[in-house]
């Protein structure tokens, strides 16, 4: 079962950014999301998320001095839900074309206003049959440290699998072969549990 989590508002070959329909309804770090681009299904891994003012120039101001709880702030100023927005960025890690899963970049970037879905367990299992995507994650230049991102995505994929332990061991072995720096490897393995 897929769950729609947002809509593409910015896209490039290697990544896309989506805005959530509901404030704070963000897919977790490292989760697998997808969006369609014609016949091609693009897959991305959520590497960054942010919530802020809808208009770039206007910063939110503190409002809660006279309120008893945080919830009360939103209750007294319902317009806030319209002025604020949550958005997330996904790194493109593969695509599916003609039924075939590919762990490399698609020919075209995502479309603006394309719907973005959080992949269900079945799709996650299918995507994580092999580990070709790890290389894309390790080599991306992102704000999020790659160790964190790789560990988060593998942890999440592990949740979708019954053979979680075996899956993580296999992933770990793959990483051991990909990563030359033993300390980095140790740091990722340490974050996998």
């Amino acid at each position: 079962m897929e769950e729609r989590v947002g809509e593409v508002i910015e896209a490039s070959t290697v990544a896309f950014t989506a805005q959530c329909y509901e404030l704070y309804c963000l897919p977790p770090l490292g989760s697998l999301v997808s969006t369609r681009q014609g016949e091609v299904e693009l897959y991305g891994i959520v590497h960054h998320a942010a919530t802020g003012s809808l208009e770039p120039g206007r910063r939110p101001i503190a409002r809660g001095r006279d309120e008893a709880s945080e919830e009360d702030i939103y209750r007294s100023s319902p317009q806030l839900l319209k002025l604020l927005q949550s958005e997330f960025c996904a790194l493109v890690v593969g695509h599916r074309e003609g039924g075939e899963m590919r762990h490399y970049l698609p020919p075209q970037p995502a479309r603006i206003h394309g719907f973005v879905y959080l992949c269900g367990p079945e799709e996650v299992r299918e995507f994580s049959q092999s580990f070709g995507f790890l290389n894309l994650l390790l080599n991306a230049h992102l704000q999020t440290p790659p160790d964190e991102l790789v560990a988060a995505s593998l942890r999440r994929m592990g949740l979708a699998r019954e053979d979680r332990h075996d899956f993580l061991v296999r992933a770990g072995r793959e990483l051991a072969l990909l990563i030359g720096d033993f300390n980095q490897l140790k740091s990722i393995l340490g974050r996998l549990r």
Binding site: H165, V169, G172, R173, L175, A176, L177, F182, L185, K186
Partner: peptide
Amino acid sequence: SPPDLSDPFIAEVLAGTS
């Protein structure tokens, strides 16, 4: 800097790879 092989997960991953 030998890894902590008392952790079975680490031991399993490293055996045969690193």
